[in-house]
Design a protein around this nucleic acid. Structure first.
Lengths: 376, 376
DNA sequence: GCTATGACTGAATCCCAGA
DNA sequence: GTCTGGGATTCAGTCATAG
């Protein structure tokens, strides 16, 4: 079972990390205020949508649609909703690390207000992501397009924030080697995944699919990160975080939801270390400078480098720089210079000849890296 | 040629309908104020996005992206942008018939502010529609998801407005007899459709595809309706309206855009009654990436994949990549790697064991495709 | 005439470690 | 905090030219 703390009890706790992997019971903003500054890596928030339903909705067969008409989804006005949004986003900003990011999901009823408030609070939007539903509810009256998607906003806490996690290479590799787009296709949460009470009724009206959270956490967090969900509900965020080797903390007011989420998370088995390893690209590889190749004897002073078409050439100097046309500089500077460009990746531009074939000097780096055997 | 009126000349005109099928030259709000109350049926607005771009962006080949850095897209602050948005939306509301509707297109840079302002002004949002681009620009630095869509908001001028046009049956009939969804797939405007100047350069930085406007007008207007575009630009709205037998009125400040739009519209031949059927978007082969199998639970992290002869094996990781012999990569890269080849089709190479028999993971894709019901 | 290759392009808020 | 410089990074499509 995940630990559950009323806010007051959490405040009294002597353990400064008591809240990790637990559910805090209470009001969202008050609970956030009990957490330390800059302590969480990722926030996923599924706030009330402020659905403005004008009475019951009937299907063509006159059955009534089980709409989300819970008390917590009712706001007196846009102003009240904006004030609420501002308050919880401000509280989230404080607990978010400078390198962290926040996700908020919503529909057209509320997402525009959330997005504008994020911008007003100086969050920096990285993407808006569209969750396309494979099986959305039809529009029964035939007066609108079928509302077949929801929108998520992914943002960093500051326009200048740079170090946020985005597992670009893993996303691309798992997507048939093309970069992941901003439109995602998933089924809604139904069937065995949907939590049901003893009465067979759904426990929570807006339970999100685990696949959606899995993509979010795989994209924007690392194993061991702390993931906060200020509107925990049925605990999808916690269940997925635990399975993926992330820590979680949830905030929820309703005891029924807390009970369901707590039991759900307890049943989750975390994946192992091998399965959780995230694919990284060149950026994560240890740096190998050009002079290391020289010192290892993989290239030699006086040797000629050319581009793949043999249109440009340069000579290696003993100090690890190149020279061409009477000028000298690093492999990158000289690659740029001979092409008349501002910048150039010398590792992929310059080639050496081996057995009649040209191969990029970048290949020589991997020789060095394998010799290092993971050491630096 | 479409008639072109400076605002002052329009005001002096004795013909109360002089503005129909014409372009009004001048500031958006001033021009709107020269039009009669409740006189247009549909508004399509493509306002400045307020992109807030930093320095130049280079492609990996070092070429520079031709950014939209025009003066008309620059705003001093969100407050300035909001004031601008409020002003033109208020002016639009006055000229819109009570049975009319408005469409506004934008990206995450501005659409949240537009949507919130629409709600503040008591417009009633009917749908938000996602334009999924078949061929969006990539994210060159690998720091975000590829920004592959734009968002449109469709709204009526009042929560109680009831008589708006929505050609539900035509939309459904043109969509394989299922309801038209809120996510639409179209290519960006390029090739022969893109207006070019004598210098071969694009006339307008943000010309929208005619197919998008055709879908909008076929869905939400009737032949003979008047369609207003307060940010006329290259005149896509006018060209499509004329072709579809609707009247148009455009507002534009820049003479270059007016000249191009005017000539463009003059060349349009209206369709006959019979041809006025709804145009459908692009239907593509559903592309199912490996992560979709994972997210759907058809394969699991930790599961072992082998080739058909069980000579090679690899383990599935949670990020949708494979690992073997301490290395990782996509199903294709790892298929190639274990065989010592340059390339490999991972879909046919890797197999899962089911009831003692091996079956290629490609077979699992058909399960997904049937679940997706033709969605891509 | 047909195919292959390469150049070019699109509403883009696009790096980061170390000095 | 700023500045320097190593070096990492792209998809779908059109069009012109070469073979």
């Amino acid at each position: 079972m995940a630990s559950v703390f009323p806010i007051a009890e959490l405040r009294r706790s002597s353990d400064p990390l008591a809240w990790v992997d637990s559910i805090i019971k209470g009001d969202c903003v008050s609970a956030l205020e009990a957490l330390p500054d800059k302590s969480v890596d990722v926030i996923f928030a599924d706030p009330p949508y402020n659905l403005q339903l004008g009475g019951a909705l009937h299907r063509p067969d006159q059955s009534v649609v089980d709409a989300c008409d819970d008390e917590w989804d009712q706001f007196a006005s846009f102003e009240a909703y904006d004030a609420f949004t501002r308050a919880w986003l401000l509280a989230c900003r404080r607990v978010l690390k400078p390198t962290g990011t926040i996700w908020v999901i919503g529909s057209y009823h509320n997402i525009f207000r959330v997005g504008a408030t994020l911008q007003d609070l100086n969050f920096w939007i990285l993407n808006d992501i569209v969750w396309r539903k494979t099986n959305p509810m039809p529009n029964f009256k035939g007066r609108r397009f079928q509302n077949a998607h929801e929108t998520m906003i992914w943002a960093s806490p500051d326009p200048k924030a740079k170090g946020y996690t985005f597992n670009y290479d893993a996303m691309k590799a798992s997507n048939d080697d093309v970069q992941m787009r901003s439109d995602w296709l998933f089924p809604i949460c139904s069937g065995g995944e949907r939590l049901k009470g003893d009465d067979g009724k759904k426990v929570h009206p807006t339970q999100k699919p685990e696949a959606l959270l899995a993509r979010i956490l795989m994209a924007s967090s690392k194993p061991g990160d702390i993931v906060l969900d200020p509107f925990f509900g049925s605990g999808t965020t916690g269940a997925v975080a635990k399975r993926l080797g992330r820590h979680f903390v949830g905030i929820e007011r309703e005891q029924d939801y807390i009970d369901a989420a707590s039991a759900r998370i307890a049943a989750v088995e975390p994946l192992g270390k091998v399965e959780l390893t995230v694919l990284t690209g060149k950026k994560a590889e240890p740096r190998v400078a050009f002079n290391v190749l020289l010192e290892a004897g993989l290239v030699k002073p006086g040797q000629v480098l050319t581009d793949i078409k043999r249109r440009h050439s340069a000579i290696i100097r003993a100090d690890g720089t190149l020279t061409a046309n009477g000028e000298g500089g690093s492999i990158h500077r000289m690659g740029a210079k001979v092409q008349g460009l501002d910048a150039c990746n010398g590792w992929t531009f310059w080639h050496v000849e081996e057995e009649g074939a040209l191969k990029p000097i970048d290949d020589l780096r991997s020789v060095i890296r394998s010799r290092m055997g993971g050491l630096e």
